[in-house]
Design a protein around this nucleic acid. Structure first.
Lengths: 193, 193
DNA sequence: TTCCTTCTTGAATGTTCGTTCAAGATACTC
DNA sequence: GAGTATCTTGAACGAACATTCAAGAAGGAA
């Protein structure tokens, strides 16, 4: 027997970043080789093919973001404040030029639209989970009297998510800190109101 | 002498749709041949190369959308109502499955990010023009007393555009009419308030 | 009609892509 | 320490890609 030499999670995160930077179609096996340090044969042995690597990278991304999400909501006692922290972090992410700048989910969603139904479905499910997570946080905020009792938490979650999508796209053309912060602030106020 | 047989605008619109459906990288010359009815040689003769075709398609898209934009604001006397009409139309577009479903600008923006700076710049400029057009409409609405006098029209335009971006992305995963209409309604209310 | 210019055609080109595979390297088992 | 199962390597593969180009078709001028 012999174990694989590479760290699977680390490889997946490298692939994740490569896909986010150039998109799925524009990331060649050579790019992936350079990014992951794995030779083509190893990639095909471990992930079946390029698409399999994307599928696992998407799942790793979901896990990582899910963990990150929960971390934000252990920061303060008040859920509504943590939602603001989360939103502010989106802005920070948008502004970090050296980083990937976009969300792997929405990036892959845009690219595989009407082409790969399975990937489309997986991403839809993942984003639905995120939406559900937001819904729960808004319900929690309602219990804490952070938002008014007559609000529809599902709607708030959808609106919040829509705002985040929009913020990310907007940031691609106008990555000006003040503007993005102002937009995020307004989104937060509109959700609270 | 001899004139070209094809209608340039019609070819550009066909290419536009092909690029929107599959994305730039995933649209092959064969796809473009099928979509436009032009043979590779003609395409290269008329547009230099695939990228040149995208560049002209982007410009045609801008022109078409610009004309469509102005049409919305000749519908009613009140600018604020026309903004609602525009927003409702975005929802309708999102829901028309047979159609392209996405905006060529944001689609290409996502795909060429950090890869083709020139295209990136062109799209940024085009989206800035749209933002500017919205700003002017909001200022017009302010003069008509449709929105309160102390509002920052530039900010409103940015927020409105952000909402539209978000709506489009959201629709890709959840194309449910009631949900999208509710989101658009809330966006409109938040902008008015 | 004849000639010339321009457009159209589609097969051919070189390149790059994702993918495969056989040889070599390595660690575990007995 | 020999044997073996598994992983790693990277050259090689066919397919698909964007692009080219020479031959053919067609309109305008004379």
């Amino acid at each position: 027997m012999r174990n694989a030499e590479f760290d699977r999670e680390q490889v997946l995160r490298s692939a994740m970043n490569a896909f986010m930077r150039k998109g799925y179609a524009n990331t060649s096996m050579q790019d992936l080789k350079k990014a992951t340090g794995l030779h083509p044969g190893s990639i095909y042995c471990a992930f079946e093919n390029k698409r399999g690597l994307l599928l696992e990278a998407l799942e790793q991304y979901r896990l990582d973001r899910s963990a990150e999400f929960e971390q934000f909501f252990s920061a303060s006692q008040k859920t509504i404040d943590n939602l603001k922290l989360y939103l502010d972090n989106v802005v920070v992410e948008c502004l970090s030029c050296d980083n990937t700048q976009a969300c792997l989910m929405t990036k892959a969603l845009n690219e595989t639209a009407e082409q790969d139904i399975e990937i489309q479905q997986i991403i839809s499910n993942n984003l639905s989970m995120l939406q559900q997570a937001f819904t729960e946080k808004f319900e929690q905020a309602k219990e804490e009297k952070g938002i008014s009792a007559h609000k529809d938490c599902e709607h708030l979650a959808r609106y919040f998510l829509m705002g985040i999508y929009g913020l990310r796209t907007f940031a691609q053309t106008h990555p000006e800190p003040e503007v993005l912060k102002q937009l995020a602030e307004q989104l937060y106020q509109d959700v609270l109101r």
